[in-house]
Nucleic acid binder design. Structure first.
Lengths: 228, 228
DNA sequence: GAGCCGCCGTTGGTATACCGAACCCCACGC
DNA sequence: GCGTGGGGTTCGGTATACCAACGGCGGCTC
């Protein structure tokens, strides 16, 4: 019986170097404010590989993946550049977001359980009660969490996956997309209406509310946010 | 003046080996019928690199990209496997497609020119007149071209990009997604209605028609198409 | 004869060396 | 003083060698 008593190693099972380099780079890039004029936007393979302590091969594969996702751009014989999204690209992302989330709301009316929909209240209420959270950066994060929750209700993994990659970029400009306090209050009211529509399983209404809510954000960004 | 008369070299500018390997592999994979039971679904890096005449490094980068796009799956120490999409995944793709295209129709009402919208007629008419094209494979291609055209009218590069990657997968099952002839005629009628809505700039109607049209396809696939 | 153990081949993961093109800077000439 | 050209340096692209783990197969044992 002694053999069964020894504690089994949890198995390190460290993922591949490529995957780890990818995660580290992604966190580093999304974490920094790339719209700061002093931001370092150029990277070098050899420098990065030395700092990560790995060879260039897995690092290059991680960079190629980030390149495909649009976070960086690898230019032959020039270097690796962190991508700053243009305002037009941000607006396009918000439009796609509106399309995906409004469809998610429609789907949610058909497939989400009552309990799942009820769970949305927590995301709005917890946020509403915390006035400190009204600071814009925090608001943006909470806002994104609410919308991600709606997308999750569609039970559609592809919708979630595409949306996540969009949020990744939208979050990068949150420090620039400053909303007035009135917008935040209006936004919370919108969220409550959306939840109500979902609860009554009114797919057409839920879809319309979500779409209009997000397109309002787009109009706001278009009118008041300046990039570049 | 002689200098200005010499013909300028078209610039060889052969893309990187990675890009070429990527294109070649993508064409090979999308071109084959992966749902044929006899299909060869396993690949090997060394074999492919030898057949392409390049080393494994650029080939691996191309494979990594295809892996991320979901066309293949690279499994450590096992091999590379061409991915067969499950029926559930196909349905999810059609759902996302419906979301993107209905939003595109809405956007098109605001930003597309009359001439652009008028151009849609050609895609429907040319197809309608060619009865031979009613063979299902052909229909599916023409169908996809029409829908891609609508998405292009949104003037939103991101919408187009995401949609293209979806069509890539949807087309792979076209040989299985056999529609009855009645469905084709109904589909053509739908297309005409969609064009009419776009021409009158009725965004709500255009969006709804596009969405319902695509969701009808989803319902049909769900009911009648069997995969795996 | 059946089942288990270990060897070995296969295959993707990683490290490293080399290559050639683009950029930068300085020297030279006008 | 300015423009130009050449050479060195920098950098990503590519090739290749080595590694480690998974799985199949054969032999050994009971």
């Amino acid at each position: 019986m002694t053999a069964t008593h020894i504690t089994i190693e949890p198995i390190v099972e460290s993922q591949s170097l490529k995957a780890r380099a990818y995660s580290a780079l992604k966190a580093a890039i999304t974490g920094m404010n790339i719209y700061d004029d002093n931001a370092q936007l150029k990277l070098e393979e050899r420098d990065l590989s030395a700092r990560f302590g790995i060879s260039r091969t897995p690092l290059r594969e991680a960079l190629a993946q980030l390149d495909q996702e649009g976070l960086v751009r690898v230019v032959a014989r020039r270097g690796i550049f962190i991508v700053r999204k243009s305002k037009a690209e941000i607006l396009e992302m918000i439009t796609v977001w509106a399309a995906l989330e409004s469809m998610s709301a429609r789907e949610a009316c058909a497939v989400a359980s009552d309990a799942e929909i009820a769970g949305l209240h927590d995301l709005v209420d917890a946020f509403k009660q915390d006035e400190v959270a009204l600071r814009m950066g925090e608001y943006s994060d909470a806002n994104i969490r609410f919308h991600q929750a709606i997308i999750a209700l569609s039970h559609n993994a592809l919708l979630e996956q595409i949306s996540d990659s969009l949020f990744l970029h939208v979050r990068a400009i949150r420090n620039r997309a400053i909303f007035e306090n009135d917008r935040v209050k209006r936004s919370i009211a919108d969220h409550k209406e959306i939840i109500a529509a979902l609860e009554t399983r009114n797919a057409d209404l839920a879809e319309r509310l979500v779409r209009e809510h997000t397109l309002k954000l787009r109009a706001h960004v278009e009118a008041f946010v300046s990039l570049d």
